[in-house]
Amino acid sequence: MADRHNRDIDRQPAPLPEPLPVPTVDAHAHIEIVTNEAPDSDAVRQVLDDAKSVNVDRIVQVGYSAEQSQWCVDMANAFPGRVLAAVALHPNEAPVVPDLEADWAIIEKLAQDPRVRAIGETGLDYFRTEPALQKRQQESFKWHIDLAKRTNKALVIHDRDSHDDVLSILLEVGAPEKTVFHCFSGDVEMAKTCIDRGYILSFAGTMTFKNAPALRDAVKLVPHDQLLVETDSPFLAPSPHRGALNTPAQIANIVRAMAAERDEDVAELATALSVNAERIFGSFA
């Protein structure tokens, strides 16, 4: 994640979109990469204020390492009512950290904070992880699944080039009651499998990309109560701003794109996404 961090903070943010007619939630963001500042800084507050100006008034700040998960917890505590946290080791971090068990202990301790409402992002990523390290990645995924169940928190899954193994492990060990596929990247058949199993699918700006017709087909199928929206800021700014620095404000553009694909009213969809986020992650108050 560090290399991506350095690249992204040098980009210009996408322009603020037209406000949504009702408030809604960004279910997955990495604000520390957007700002490269302290969790209670003016820069972080400005990102939140920009989002609120377009009616994106709540954000789930998501962890990917032990150190950065602490940042997430600190941000959530600095902005009650506006931010909740998720904590975890990213699947690309798990095989390379010097002491996996020590980092797990940090994540487990952070998970006890009342502002932490999810364990994530965890999962599998075979795009960057060589086959020799995939077993360790799978071990870490199983540990995070167990932690989510023991703490009764949502599980937030990162799944890249690993669909079959992610689904198999969830069946093998048993999925938590609230299991979220962050930045869903599967096709229609995978979406149907996830829907049948009761998983929650979160769509990002990728569904607006020209080369993603499968995602647009998939988003049409998801029942209201199994649907979330996210930016994955600072990555994956939606079209027509692909390549810009993404921020939570871009949820407004993604929701409009989702509503168009689903042939739904924007306000009704935004409200449903907000209700889902509060049901899955709890109150932001």
Rank of each mutant, 00 (worst) to 15 (best):
R197G: 01
A244P: 01
H224C: 00
K220C: 04
A249Q: 14
L147I: 09
R216H: 03
L110P: 12
L245S: 06
A154V: 06
V229Q: 04
D146T: 14
V219S: 01
R160D: 05
A249V: 06
K135P: 04
L167R: 15
H241P: 07
T206R: 08
Q226D: 07
A111W: 13
G198R: 14
L110H: 12
N246S: 09
Q137K: 10
L215T: 00
E121S: 05
W143Y: 12
H144E: 08
E121Y: 11
A148M: 09
S185G: 15
N253D: 11
A118Q: 14
F209A: 04
A118D: 14
D196Y: 05
S202K: 07
R150H: 11
G123S: 05
I254N: 07
D225H: 15
H158W: 07
I145Q: 09
L215A: 00
R150Q: 15
L171E: 15
D225C: 01
I200L: 10
P238I: 01
S185P: 09
R242N: 11
D146F: 00
G198S: 10
T129D: 10
K135G: 04
Y199L: 02
L227K: 05
R128A: 02
A244L: 02
G243W: 07
Q112G: 04
V156T: 08
A118K: 14
F235L: 03
L171G: 10
I157C: 02
Y126A: 02
W143L: 00
D196H: 12
R117N: 04
Q138L: 02
R242P: 13
L167N: 14
D165R: 13
I254M: 04
T247D: 08
V255F: 06
I254P: 11
P234W: 05
I251R: 13
V116R: 11
M207Q: 14
G243Q: 06
D225R: 10
L167S: 12
I251S: 08
V166W: 13
Q134E: 10
F184I: 00
F141K: 08
A132V: 13
G174T: 11
G123P: 12
V255W: 13
H182Q: 09
H158G: 03
L245D: 11
F141V: 03
L201I: 08
H144V: 03
A237G: 10
A154F: 07
P238G: 01
H163S: 09
D165H: 11
E189N: 15
N211G: 02
D217T: 08
D161K: 14
Q226E: 07
K178V: 06
K142H: 04
S233G: 10
F127G: 03
T129S: 10
R136T: 15
D113G: 02
G186I: 05
K210H: 12
P176R: 07
V156Y: 03
K149Y: 09
N152K: 15
I157E: 06
D217Q: 15
T193I: 07
L167C: 04
L167W: 12
Q134P: 06
N211E: 10
M207E: 07
V180I: 15
F235R: 12
I251N: 13
T151N: 06
H158K: 05
F141E: 10
Q134W: 05
A175F: 07
E130S: 09
H144Y: 08
P213M: 00
I254H: 10
T151M: 08
T151F: 02
D187L: 00
